[in-house]
Amino acid sequence: MSTPWVEKYRPKKLDEVSAQSNVIRVLSNQLKSANMPHLLFYGPPGTGKTSTILAMARELFGPQLMKSRVLELNASDERGISIVRDKVKNFARLSVTNPTPEDKENYPCPPYKLIILDEADSMTFDAQSALRRIMENYSHITRFCIICNYITRIIDPITSRCSKFRFSPLNSANSLATLKMISQSEELDIDDDSLTQILDISNGDLRKSINFLQTGHKLFGEDSIENIAGLIPQNLVQSLIETLQSKNLNKIYEFLYMLVLKSYNSATILTSLHSCLLLKNIYLNSEQKIEVSRILYETDSKLSSGSDEFIQMLNLFLQLSKIF
């Protein structure tokens, strides 16, 4: 294995980015005029934010010039306030180099540099506020592209300086086409049904599905896709719900103990209960559903603050059994 497929099949041009047609249209227009504002991309993981900006940078500067014109910082780099003050500022205030004649012929090569701050929601607020003036002061020679999952974690002064683009989860037709393309060029023996199943599991996260295709493709024959993905098999969820309906507390306790031993973790139990009880279920009325979602929410919040899984799941199951 050399490169992960996610990198190997990362789009090289803007048009190749799957879906996100609105964003791409706007950006291609900007590409023509070679002028662009600061950008802020936000949206769930695996929707093509990083791919889009990398492809765009490539089309703007060409592979050669890109090295000197683009600075990419992500969460794996130290990004405290000192880095913003030193590294980012120093890069931002460098004047732009002249492109070689070849580059100039083939690419627009606009007279500014590009700083990509990937995964910006893990930057501290202090570091973000240090960015504010830098963005304005050097706007004649530097553009920023800020990428994040949660726009609420970016401070207002930054968002107001950027034009915002929302990346929505990919629809399945588009992702299916991409997966098919990959499996063809990798010569995988895989049918459409399995591909659709992979997409279902990854919930519109294209990177997840590509990664899953790569890591799991050798094992698909040996085991069910649900199992490889670490999901709870449907029949187990069904028997869980039946056990809850029986209202026999000791039986519920035993069932939970079994789940814990089999190492099905609570996060996946929560998601499968959610999809089974709220999205698919027909035999609960609206009031019951409201109650179910309240209980699921409470358990999730308690779990994310790091409390013990066994107790929380036991509480969840007991509370749910009260509703049926």
Partner: peptide, 21 residues
């Protein structure tokens, strides 16, 4: 022991292997 506190991006980059007791 439990993948509940592993963030989603990491889970999507790894192959999960469940070792039951």
């Amino acid at each position: 022991n439990s993948i509940s506190s592993i963030i989603e991006p990491i889970k999507s980059r790894t192959l999960l292997i469940r070792v039951a007791a």
